[in-house]
Write a protein that binds this DNA or RNA. Structure first.
Lengths: 351, 351
DNA sequence: TTGTAGGCGTTATCAT
DNA sequence: ATGATAACGCCTACAA
């Protein structure tokens, strides 16, 4: 029993439950009980408990969650995977996740994949090795097959945001319907040449919005014209560039549907710089209804998507899954509503 | 030795190194060696190694980082604390942190404090219990005394972003100088009544920008007028509201300095709605140079702050600290440069 | 009410 | 080159 002091030599060791026990003159079991959350209802003498608490505080003791997790087979950590936290869509989602996760006592490991399958897979492996209790895949994984078996083997619950083939609970936005609705708004105003500024093909969300655009065109008897769709990254610069190209073509569009608000703001800037009046000469729509959408001039007509609620809902789904409240079988996707917000950037086409 | 199958009863156990060892017909030590990163240089027969690798893969084995961390006294996890990831300043910072952290093999736990001391302290405790190797406090803690001793006791390295009294490496922006520079720009243009749309008092960053404003006023022989400063949250709505109040006062300002770009965009909108021309009648400046700053019209004159670099620099600081490459004593703060970006939202005051 | 001890899954040390 | 085994820090039957 003399080997206990083995490691005391180098840098001072971190204080462990045994140190508290020794200092308090009790056993480690007693310390554990005194510190345990429900120690009130436990068999422990109040004075003992008090004494242990004080000793623990005096020593600056912090329980080691690793040891606890190793024993209990649960870490109270969830992994959250997003394509890119810099994309203004995600901070709100992540914030929603964190709010409900932390309220439920979970910590959150954040991972950015940049939509690269390699990064995604590497992160998922890492998360399994971390023995996170659950993983929230919030986009960027639509085209990457995910090995659910490995999660099942390690009892890791999975929830995804967005449409995906993986068999697990999900929260989705009906981006097809939303894309159709905003396009239909322009068509309803009388526009017949409606352009689309689309995003990268790698994003399922953006593909769906694109598909909605085509659907609405069809439903309104409008032809799909390849020349009227431009692509780019999801930022202002791309919107600016593509809008500039659109306006200089023969027979330019009178309406421009955009796949997110940043691109829309870029488009607005391009139109402004060319002296084209919005909405009188050209109408523009955004997508997402980010905070500045109602502060640019003209105010942006766009579609509101409940980003924060996407996060909270997904986290709630995951947490009830962790509590075993969700069916093993894939439950129906939770589809959150979107809404076309009509502001000032659209009008009937010029006569 | 028959008690090995104890837990096999309930849900199937996760596969451990012992399962791999048994399946491969070797000892756990051999498996560990085969899987260890530098096993190439290790004493292990290539065929054995190969065999173990295959068995491991076949079983879907993933090493348990908890156990490893418990033993090695390091988790390869860092904690990142921000006031609010929804604030557009932080996603880029966090992205920078994650990029260098993940490249160095670290995972990241993200915490939002909303600048509430209670939340901050609770998170810091949690992080210590998680035994993260280091903590990056990226703002929101300026007025909360931080107990560095507890970090020291648990060998947790700390790096902060922003000015703070805590004794540890830090990366800072000279917000005072930046605030002075942008204000001086207006003063240099001939403005004599320069208003400030300030942020919450709880933010050190915002206080510093405010102080810079006062400094520039003084240096230019301009009086500080309490009536010319309005406060609000750091969003468009606040900028809109305060700008509206400013324009309706007697003897309104000819220049408006704003403490972040979102507020500036709000101010621009308010001015637009009142038919006040920017920059001809009133000049407006922003702060941060977020992506849309050059896409609103008029383009926003603002000060660029290297958000992404703030993140990478802080993470690099923390990681070299973890590697023991940084002095124990507080090193000099790393101050990153800011730059006034002159665009179209400022002009000399009307005659 | 309190103490003893086994084991969670690793890695590292010491044998062999 | 490989194997047995002792920690890492904690919780929880079980014993006292």
């Amino acid at each position: 029993m003399a080997e206990r002091s083995r490691r005391r030599q180098g840098g001072r060791r971190t204080v462990s439950i045994r140190d508290v026990a020794e200092a308090a003159g009790v056993s480690v079991a007693t310390v554990s009980r005194a510190l345990s959350a429900d120690s009130a209802s436990f068999h422990i003498r109040p004075e003992t408990r008090q004494h242990v608490l004080e000793t623990s505080a005096a020593l600056g003791y912090r329980p080691n969650d690793l040891a606890r997790a190793l024993l209990q087979q649960r870490t109270s950590v969830i992994g959250v995977v997003v394509p890119d936290i810099s994309n203004p869509f995600y901070p709100d989602v992540v914030r929603g996740i964190e709010d409900v996760a932390s309220a439920a006592g979970y910590r959150m490991i954040l991972c950015n994949t940049d939509r690269e399958p390699d990064r995604l897979n590497k992160y998922l492996e890492t998360l399994v090795s971390s023995r996170v209790d659950g993983v929230l895949i919030a986009g960027g994984a639509a085209d990457t097959p995910i090995d659910v078996d490995i999660f099942a083997r390690y009892h890791t619950k999975v929830v995804v945001v967005g449409r995906h083939d993986v068999e697990c609970p999900s929260v989705q936005l009906d981006n097809v319907a939303a894309g159709a609705a905003i396009t239909a708004h322009l068509a309803g105003l009388g526009h017949r040449r409606i352009a689309l500024i689309a995003g990268p093909e790698g994003s399922r969300t953006m593909r769906d919005r694109f598909e909605g655009y085509r659907t609405a065109l069809r439903e309104h008897g409008l032809p799909f014209d390849e020349a009227l769709v431009g692509r780019g990254e999801l930022d202002e610069a791309a919107g600016y560039r593509v809008a500039g190209e659109l306006t200089t073509m023969d027979n330019p569009p009178t309406g421009i549907v955009t796949v997110n608000d940043r691109m829309a703001v870029g488009a607005l800037a391009a139109l402004h710089d060319q002296g084209i009046a919005v909405p009188h000469q050209v109408s523009v729509t955004g997508f997402d209804d980010v905070s500045f959408a109602s502060y640019v001039r003209p105010k942006l007509t766009t579609v509101a998507v409940p980003t924060y609620r996407v996060g909270t809902t997904a986290a709630e789904l995951l947490i009830s899954s962790l509590r075993g409240e969700v069916e093993r079988t894939t439950s129906e996707p939770v589809v959150l509503p979107t809404e076309v917000i009509i502001r000032d950037s659209c009008a009937p086409p010029p006569a």
